[in-house]
Simulated assay, not measured.
Amino acid sequence: MIRVFGFLAVVCVALSVVLAFTAFRYERTDRTQPISGFGKVETLKSPIRAGEALPVRIWREKARGDCPVVSERTAISQDGVVYDLPDAEWSGGSADDPYLDYRYPTLPFMPEGEYQLRVDLNYTCPGGLLFKYTQPPAFFRIAT
């Protein structure tokens, strides 16, 4: 009987240590969102040719730079046709700069016309925290 109580005491102490370590680790996790707000997205060159990269300037308030980002991109034509552009994973740019210059790829078979670029951002921060944002749209034109 004493062995059983001794074993249970050891198990309780071990579980307490694991629980305390987990709580300490949880408490120390930085939950600051990487982006605190977006300003605007400015197209730097339009029109472009199909297949060329679309240069844009993204105004945002970035609070931290330790969260890699995956961007999912689509271009929507004036007729409502949706083109899935290549996704990308990258560092997300410096938190020190008020804006970010970026070049989004387009597809070589996109017809001439007016488009809206939509970008969904998924930041994965240390501790497994995921933050999702939708960037303001950018408008551009494809011409020959």
Rank of each mutant, 00 (worst) to 15 (best):
L19W: 14
C12P: 01
G6P: 00
F5W: 11
L121T: 10
A20W: 14
R141F: 04
I142M: 05
P136G: 03
A9T: 05
E61M: 07
A50H: 05
F24T: 04
Y133V: 13
G37S: 08
L130T: 13
W90P: 01
P98E: 11
A53S: 12
Y104T: 10
L117E: 05
V70L: 07
N122D: 12
E52T: 11
P105M: 04
Y115C: 03
R57P: 00
A23Y: 11
N122S: 10
R49Y: 08
L130Y: 00
K40A: 14
Y123K: 03
F139M: 15
G127R: 08
L8Y: 02
A75C: 09
A20K: 04
V69A: 03
V11H: 01
P34W: 02
C12E: 02
E89R: 01
L117A: 09
T29I: 15
P136M: 08
I142F: 13
E114V: 07
Q116C: 04
E27C: 00
D96F: 15
R141N: 08
S16Q: 10
T134F: 01
T22A: 14
A23W: 13
A23H: 07
D66E: 03
R49I: 00
R57K: 11
P34Q: 10
R49G: 07
P86M: 12
I142N: 04
L44A: 06
S94T: 15
V41G: 01
G65I: 02
I48L: 07
F5T: 07
W90V: 04
I76N: 03
G127Y: 10
G39M: 08
S16R: 01
R118C: 01
D97W: 13
W90N: 12
P126H: 01
S91G: 12
S94Y: 09
D120W: 00
A20N: 04
D79M: 08
M110I: 04
D101F: 07
L44F: 00
L15W: 12
Y102S: 02
R73L: 12
E61C: 02
Y115I: 10
K62H: 03
P86F: 10
K45L: 15
F38N: 09
G37W: 05
D79L: 12
T124F: 07
S16I: 02
G127P: 04
D87V: 00
A23L: 15
I48S: 03
L121C: 03
L117W: 03
F140H: 02
I142D: 01
V18A: 11
V119K: 01
E72G: 02
R118Y: 00
F109Q: 09
I2Y: 08
I2A: 14
V13T: 03
D66V: 14
A88W: 03
F5R: 15
F24V: 06
P108N: 09
D84E: 13
M110W: 14
F38T: 12
F131R: 06
G39D: 05
S71N: 05
E114C: 01
K62N: 11
D66C: 10
D97V: 03
E72L: 11
Y104V: 15
F38A: 09
A138T: 10
C12W: 04
F21P: 00
S71I: 14
R60C: 06
I48R: 06
T124L: 13
